[in-house]
Write a protein that binds this DNA or RNA. Structure first.
Lengths: 238, 238
DNA sequence: AGACCGTATTGGTCTAGACCGCTTCAATCG
DNA sequence: CGATTGAAGCGGTCTAGACCAATACGGTCT
């Protein structure tokens, strides 16, 4: 018995969880402790281990629930619409616009979008929900001269991609993509309602427009790994 | 003061760590507890938080050390040699061959490599070190007919890529790439000397050979995130 | 029926104390 | 001088008990 109690309990719970429905509730920490004859902190360590594996989500005052992860698959030819990708995974997407401002481009953005010193960019910050849970913060920066009156065109809950394609006749395609896993900045974490600075999927993508042969937008997203399972799949279409 | 003690301590320690050299040792959990006037478990929770952020590594019986992460950047035109990429990051790579066998291809492999029912594949399992620390398990599967006598050709510590290029006149290029973050299988974890099933970067890549216009190899790697910081960077070279 | 409020439950945090296995390193023995 | 041993120090685990903040729910009051 060199395996710690809490890990044995975690593995036991994991196999039980695999037979349960998503979003169903686990026994409370106290009950688990009594059921398995261990201290509450030991049972808690087991549940924390499951949380670390993204198998459960905990809500203070409410309980621990089997998590319902959605695979967000980024492919070379993926539908450029975020909502579309989520819907394809069988989940319900929703996007909320937090702010829409025209600002001066900071240096790294000027370089990425090939802008001049006093060019301006439109900064669009959106909060994305998956099954009505805050899952992702997306910051999009567009060259302002390419999207005049964007605010008016974005009024109804349309997707940005649709507006770019239909209203502005731009044809965005993915030109750059970067992804890693790191601690989210505290402002991002608090927008998602997360206290302790969490590890998240950080994706940075640039889209260009084929018609004008120039960079169109730069998007950085922070994704909750317990809700979204971001997979980059670059299989070449043959 | 709604912020928990252990998080305040963690943030305090994080800023101290940022001024320290890699691999230097932190105060022990007991000392941290005494220094900051908290219980050892509280100090321990703070150190665990730092470990979760990949900022420190802990060795039982020895201490807690500032981690020394190496960025492993995958780009479209990256040198196909793993060792080369590590060296470019300023670290010291080493590769150890664990096994080299010829086996019958399992279905998913047959499909990936476009093989027939009784074709065989060479399975090469390697353990990769970064600065003499076990960092990655790499399983490579090659179509056996393309690499006759691979064992003899791999004898001296040469890189697989070099052997493929020089001995077999094959010209591998990246044809498929998939990456996510998930719990490592227990056999992988134990090969890396990790007890509790850890979250790792899981990368699956396929290389084809341009000359023969057919799939050449399939590689799956499991990477320790506290040692390797895997970044996928698909910026198009313009 | 709807708005309000208190109470039980849940996870979140913290303390004090204990034992274990492993690593390290100095002291000792051959 | 080299090899072995032992003790000290380290992280890893576990227990018992306690208080807090947030939630959920039932009951009450309007």
């Amino acid at each position: 018995m060199t395996i710690p109690t809490y890990l044995k309990l975690a593995d036991e719970l994991e196999s039980e969880i695999s037979k349960m429905n998503a979003n169903s509730r686990l026994a409370s920490e106290k009950d688990l402790a009594v059921l398995h004859g261990v201290n509450r902190l030991t049972a808690r360590a087991a549940v924390q281990e499951l949380e670390r594996r993204y198998l459960v989500r905990r809500r203070p005052g409410s309980g621990t629930f089997v998590s319902d992860r959605v695979e967000f698959r980024i492919t070379p030819n993926s539908p450029p619409s975020w909502s579309e990708v989520i819907r394809l995974s069988g989940a319900t997407p929703r996007t909320e616009t937090l702010s829409l401002r025209t600002v001066r481009a900071v240096p790294w953005l000027r370089e990425a979008l090939h802008l001049a010193a006093d060019d301006r960019v439109v900064h669009l910050r959106r909060l994305r929900y998956v099954n009505e849970e805050a899952a992702c913060i997306a910051d999009t920066f567009l060259a302002a001269d390419l999207v005049p009156d964007l605010r008016a065109n974005l009024k109804s809950n349309e997707s940005l991609h649709k507006v770019l394609t239909e209203n502005y006749k731009l044809d965005p395609y993915r030109a750059e993509l970067k992804m890693d896993v790191e601690v989210a900045p505290s402002d991002i974490a608090s927008l998602l309602g997360l206290g302790t600075r969490p590890m998240m999927f950080h994706v940075v993508a640039r889209s260009d427009t084929r018609r004008l042969k120039r960079p169109l937008q730069m998007t950085t997203t922070w994704n909750r790994p317990d809700i979204l399972r971001v997979v980059i799949d670059l299989s070449e279409s043959s």
